[in-house]
Design a protein around this nucleic acid. Sequence first.
DNA 1: ATGGCGGTGGAGCACCGA
Length: 261
Amino acid sequence: MRIATWNVNSIKQRLDHLATFVKSADPDVLCLQELKCMDEAFPRAEVEALGYNVVTHGQKTYNGVAILSKKPLEDIRRGLPGDDGDEQARYLEGVISTSAGVVRVASIYLPNGNPIGTPKFDYKLAWMDRLIAHARRLHGLEEPLVLCGDYNVIPEPKDAANPEAWANDALFRPESRAKFRELENLGFSDAVRACSDQPGLYSFWDYQAGAFQRNNGIRIDHLLLSPQAQDKLKSASIRKEVRGWDKPSDHVPVMVDLNID
DNA sequence: ATGGCGGTGGAGCACCGA
């Protein structure tokens, strides 16, 4: 089973890229972030025509997450528990049944949090606390589980081309990194790092200042695996070439292959 | 780089992203 995650920065703007990507990579499950549209406006028919079941949790203009799956999704959860007043569409979860048992997948769009010292950063940290609490419960299910998405966290200095430039950024603040570690320390492993400790593995390059041409990137899109998913981990990869396509998203797909049929 | 680009809404330019 191949599971991918991709912040598309507007699904309407990226529909051609989505089709090209799924035809070449052929993921069984694809988690999307930053749809920037409401559920009714999601290009459902076009995506279904590519061979996927579609579950969305959309919002006007901002945020929005989806899970595309060749097999049907069940036990759908829209939104992260812990704050009924939170209107932002940043979390979607579902379960896929296979001949080898179930696999649970979440599509996560963690808040950016900039600038620090404002309510936006407080919201990011509070959202991470809610994610940690929910992930702790899911971990207890002892299922293969993949928490994937745009975490907006640079875990380590080697995950940025110029880490010093990010010192005061919400993506690299010690508080953000500590909460990401807290999540990992529940017993989740960062799939890309389980496969490689090399520097220079990035999933995002800014549109500005020729960041991609200079390879001035950061790694902020992650797939965290429960122990039962780690047992099945075959490989992980970052589809860097997608950033070189015409009119790309600023993020590229990241994916894992699991030994699950 | 205190915002160089890109998307949205809606028809200016503000807001957001990372």
